[in-house]
Nucleic acid binder design. Structure first.
Lengths: 204, 204
DNA sequence: GTCTATAGAAGGATAGAC
DNA sequence: GTCTATCCTTCTATAGAC
């Protein structure tokens, strides 16, 4: 692969990422992607064969990014509270920098479940939960967290982080008419969400 | 409007609701809606003029339903804890019965912010928050809930309810490989989420 | 590798008969 | 009010010149 290839392929990939994030698979147009990449429509097919394959390449990269960015949290030797605070701060900051990501991923996984399985099957969640149970045995006992309730806890933490971005247009619109700022709300949220979870757990 | 009109218009509207919920505005096809309604494509235009207007009619009905179903919660003379438990039980049950609703609404409001404003502008959130503050003055004081933090609290409650459905395909997919059931998870969640919020608040 | 031109299909919308 | 036929546009994808 020559240097020129790489440049063009990269330009296409970046343009596609932008457009797909903004419009979704169904709403995105190959012409728009080509325009943004500053090349001809035919070149998209030359490099990626079809819209489907181009989309899959983009989606795969995004999912890979998500997992590799937050998997390390589990390796950290932190208390449950520290881990929660660390994760929520990092996760909310990450979505803050990529505002369309949450809505995009949530939408596409529901429209095309097959694409999800491809990634899920690579991961071993039983092992992941074992790790959590081992790392935080004492705290789980103390706070009465059972293996059954781990999914409830994890999805709750994710919910507090992801939902504001998924519902961003709605929340921002409400704030606008009430002299609130969405940005301030998100800044506050990093600590609020962490306190919320920690208090919810500790008070069991 | 004759009886026959109403029947056809209703059939179209129901078919459109189903298809739009499933495919979204961009993914939906007029032909598919016509097929499902058991009528010809031209009739869609006869009754609704365009895809846009048909979509708006469907979307408006859904948003109206959401508000009219949950606005009464605020009128109830319940404690903050009772209100939280009541709302979460009802809201999760509602989404349980309409599994595609959460994902659909979240996606469309981000794609078409104009449609959101149309509804938001009708509502007076300042008054709504005043009502909450008045109704629960003692509890707000006791639990240290300020006017500033009301949006954080409300979005947190909504997050715990909505997120599992918005991320349904992902969560269900993970559960599948681990002998968990999404339905059981949702049933549990009605109480788990309520406990979570109540504990988070009380422990401040 | 990149472009122009165009095929081929599908989608939304309308005209006009009944 | 409902249908058939069709227009016009748009979109993905390919052929072929350079």
């Amino acid at each position: 692969m020559t240097e020129k290839d790489k440049q063009t392929e990269e330009k296409i990939f970046e343009a596609a990422t932008t457009i797909f994030l903004e419009k979704g698979m169904d709403g995105a147009r190959m012409q728009e992607i080509a325009d943004r990449a500053g090349i001809n429509k035919s070149l998209l097919h030359y490099y990626y064969r079809s819209k489907d394959r181009l989309f899959n390449a983009v989606f795969e990269a995004i999912v890979r990014l998500l997992f590799q960015k937050f998997a390390p949290v589990l390796d950290e030797k932190l208390t449950l509270e520290e881990k929660t605070r660390f994760f929520l701060r990092e996760h909310i900051s990450f979505l803050q920098q990529n505002p369309r990501l949450a809505s995009f991923v949530l939408n596409e996984i529901n429209r095309n479940p097959a694409i999800v399985k491809k990634f899920i099957e690579k991961l071993d969640f039983n092992t992941l939960w074992d790790t959590l149970e081992t790392q935080h045995q004492d705290e789980f006992l103390k706070y009465n967290i059972t293996r059954e309730s781990i999914p409830q806890l994890i999805t709750s933490i994710l919910a507090l982080s992801v939902f504001p971005f998924a519902a961003r247009a709605l929340i921002a619109s409400i704030f606008e008419t009430n002299e609130f700022s969405f940005d301030d709300y998100i800044e506050q949220r990093k600590e609020y969400a962490a306190d919320f979870v920690v208090n919810a757990i500790k008070n069991k």
